[in-house]
Design a protein around this nucleic acid. Structure first.
Length: 419
RNA sequence: GGGGGGAUGCCCGAGUGGCCAAAGGGAGCAGACUGUAAAUCUGCCGGCGAUGCCUACGGAGGUUCAAAUCCUCCUCCCCCCA
């Protein structure tokens, strides 16, 4: 390395562009100048960087929140670096305490295997899997002997562990912390040793673990990795992080119309964030969108529809994305019926004495979760039969009125009863 | 090993014998307004064709006409001392 101070200005233009794009949408790049140094060195030595991402297959499906870091990794790939994707089949059994306020239940191996398979399959929607170095951490973690584990545990002190936010909170709040959880950051750090990472990516909740990796690499005689964190993506509610448990997620396998619709429901203030984190767009484009929105030259509603179409097309192709946009405009802007109505037969159980008891029908067809909920929806004017609002909670209709009718509950639930 | 505190509905949290399907808040759902945005207002928010019945206050028993509330045992968590 030269002694010359390293600044953006004295970098070759294309390297500067690469760096700018890589750090776009990140929260931390630590230590500050480290990544820049490495990129420069990679260039001069003709050796691509090894960018590590470890994921624990703890969830059966992945959603847009998971793709943020995957896109970042894909960006490294696009610049010719090596994406090292570690399936944490071993660490999944330990359970990452990051951001947890509770003990995480340990997973069965069978579940882990299944999750791992779907994860890889879905990650392929973002990464170029042919060029990914795909490994499992059980390969090197399982064979460790007690001696090795002890050596590893000696690297860190308990006080250092308790500096961690989530541990500190739980400790202060009289919540349990198991020794097992203390092991987690050590194992993740050991992964970095095993794959000789140049840079490790992760969510901001991973910062402690990522930095721990540096300590551990150092203790094992390796140059500590750079650390890059990306924000946790806020869910469609705009407040909580995107997560299945909060029901504010957009799954990568969702139907184009649902994906489009869910993205439309995010608060405006999240638009640029989504644009940055979910589209893989270069930073210049992001800046441009931001500028036009600020000037009022880009109507928020249009921008959001463009965004939704853009993201949808990444997972379903542009034809399906365009169709999803048309569907959306039709149903929600023009307030017309969707073009492909779901259809269901009139269930026999809904009939009594030759009448159709509406609450029961709504329940049976899945438009309401129970008869009681159906009644409530009716009382609140949320139910339409052939565009006629029915507010009578015990409404009984004749079969003729119901057959072939379109039933709408709320703004988005539609069903046609077969004739 | 000893002593003390705690577990309530999706989440937080009140409730210490009947008035408790359980206050309040959050989340959620629905209506109005809109751009399925934000903000705001309003209503709902266990199940059952239902002036009643069933399920539910960590689990199992018990006391009582009556238990989320009292007793016994169990499970789990936390704190203090060692």
């Amino acid at each position: 390395m030269s002694d010359e101070p390293l600044t953006l200005e004295n970098l070759p233009a294309d390297l500067r562009e690469e760096y700018q794009n890589l750090i776009t949408g990140t929260v931390d790049v630590l230590p500050a100048e480290d990544l820049l140094q490495r990129l420069l060195r990679a260039r001069t030595e003709g050796r691509p960087l090894r960018a590590k991402l470890g994921v624990d297959p703890t969830a059966p499906d992945i959603h847009l929140g998971h793709t943020v870091v995957l896109r970042k990794l894909a960006q490294f790939q696009a610049y010719g670096h090596t994406a090292v994707l570690i399936i944490g089949d071993f660490t999944a059994k330990v359970g990452d305490p990051s951001g947890r306020s509770k003990l995480r239940p340990r997973l069965e191996e069978e579940t882990i295997e299944k999750n791992a398979a779907t994860y890889v399959e879905q990650a392929a929607k973002v990464l170029d899997m042919d060029r990914v170095e795909l490994v499992r951490n059980s390969d090197w973690l399982s064979p460790l002997k007690m001696d090795d584990v002890l050596r590893l545990s000696a690297v860190v002190t308990v006080a250092r562990m308790l500096e961690r936010d989530d541990f500190a909170k739980r400790y202060a709040g009289n919540e349990p912390i198991s020794m097992l959880e203390f092991m987690y950051p050590l194992l993740q750090g050991y992964d970095s040793v095993a794959v000789r990472a140049d840079v490790e990516l992760g969510g901001t909740d991973q910062k402690f673990n990522l930095l721990m990796g540096r300590n551990i690499m150092d203790a094992y005689g390796l140059e500590p990795q750079s650390v890059m964190t990306v924000p946790l993506l806020a869910g469609t509610d705009g407040t909580q992080k995107m997560s299945k448990t909060y029901g504010n997620y957009v799954g990568v396998n969702e139907a184009p119309e649902d994906m489009f619709g869910k993205i439309m429901s995010i608060p405006d203030r999240l638009m640029v964030t989504y644009w940055t984190l979910l589209t893989g767009a270069p930073y210049r484009e992001i800046e441009d969108v931001q500028r036009r929105l600020d000037k009022g030259a880009y109507h928020p509603a249009t921008a959001k529809r463009d965004l939704a179409e853009r993201i949808t097309s990444l997972y379903h192709g542009s034809a399906a994305a365009t169709a999803a946009r048309e569907h959306f405009d039709r149903v929600f802007r023009e307030r017309e019926l969707p073009e492909n109505l779901a259809e269901a037969a009139l269930p026999a159980e809904a009939l009594k004495d030759g009448k159709v008891w509406l609450p029961r029908l709504l329940n049976l067809t899945g438009l309401a979760a129970s008869n009681g909920e159906a009644r409530r929806l009716l009382e609140q004017g949320a139910v339409r039969v052939n565009d006629r609002v029915i507010t009578e909670s015990e409404a009984e209709l004749s079969p003729e009125e119901v057959r072939g009718a379109v039933i709408q509950v709320g703004k988005r639930r539609f069903l046609r009863i077969s004739a």
